[in-house]
């Protein structure tokens, strides 16, 4: 069995374990390559039907192309989609025009998610994070509990091995279920190619530039690239020495910016 097949089976197992153990799940969805791989895997896990809602945390700084993709995918897959905006923070004037990227990311992503959690009372959230993206994500668990304050207690994570997971929480807490933890950026693209998964056009070069990782437009940089096919992306990734999230400003705003963000609920 190929390694990619092993990853697919493992992710499907994780999806099903989560759905069997939690009462009220949801799946945050950012429209990117990992998010679309998650939809695909969920469809396989549940024989064609995704039995929980997807959540888009809309920062109001989304690329118009990505919003167009969101509407296309909603219709294409027939997904139950909840869109969440931290209106309160926007009214206070929180935005990239006046605030640093770590503050904005915390307010418009993490706190928006926390508001959604308070409203819908989800006990599990499926995320698309991967270990190879960031060195704090490399320390994550497949089932990673969060406190009622949406905090990650990274100093005291539960043990996890042999396919047994943390599947119960106290009221107000939730578990982050992370089926792509073992996948690399290259694995995702090879899987997208193997399966023929539709992805946003923004990943492919236009006028000599393409996006490798997608976030809010004021803080997301494209890279120089001529690549317009998935084969091209796969080849580019095999030789590149640039980190995937190099073009995401919030990660590099200060030392350990990701640790601080993630401890407070960022994915």
């Amino acid at each position: 069995m190929s390694y990619l097949q092993h990853l697919e089976d493992q992710s499907i197992y994780i999806f099903r374990e989560a759905f069997a153990n939690f009462k009220n799940m949801a799946m945050p969805w950012s429209m990117g390559k990992d998010s679309n791989t998650l939809i695909w895997l969920a469809k396989k896990a549940f024989a064609g039907k995704i039995p929980f809602p997807l959540v888009h945390i809309d920062t109001t700084y989304e690329f118009p192309e990505m919003l167009a993709f969101r509407e296309w995918a909603r219709n294409h897959y027939g997904i139950d989609l909840i869109v969440m905006v931290n209106e309160e923070a926007r009214k206070r004037g929180v935005g990239y025009e006046s605030h640093d990227p770590v503050t904005v990311t915390h307010e418009l992503k993490s706190l928006a998610l926390q508001q959604a959690l308070a409203k819908y009372k989800w006990d599990a959230l499926v995320t698309g994070i991967r270990r190879d993206e960031d060195s704090t994500r490399a320390k994550e668990r497949y089932f990673s509990p969060r406190t009622a304050e949406n905090e990650w207690e990274y100093r005291d994570q539960p043990p996890e091995f042999w396919g047994q997971f943390t599947t119960a929480v106290k009221p107000g807490e939730h578990v982050r279920v992370q089926p792509l933890l073992d996948w690399t950026e290259l694995d995702v693209w090879e899987y997208v190619r193997r399966e023929g998964i539709p992805v946003p056009k923004m990943y492919f070069a236009e006028n000599g530039r393409r996006y490798r990782s997608l976030g809010c437009w004021p803080i997301t940089q494209s890279i120089e690239s001529q690549v317009s096919t998935i084969d091209g992306i796969v080849e580019e990734l095999k030789t590149t020495k640039t980190a995937e999230r190099a073009g995401r400003a919030q990660d590099h705003h200060e030392r350990n910016a990701m640790q601080k963000l993630r401890a407070k609920g960022f994915m």
Partner: peptide
């Protein structure tokens, strides 16, 4: 505007 790119399926799990 068509926002999605549709890769050609390589054969799924049967693709070895």
């Amino acid at each position: 505007y068509v926002p999605a790119f549709f890769p050609k399926r390589q054969g799924g799990a049967a693709h070895a």
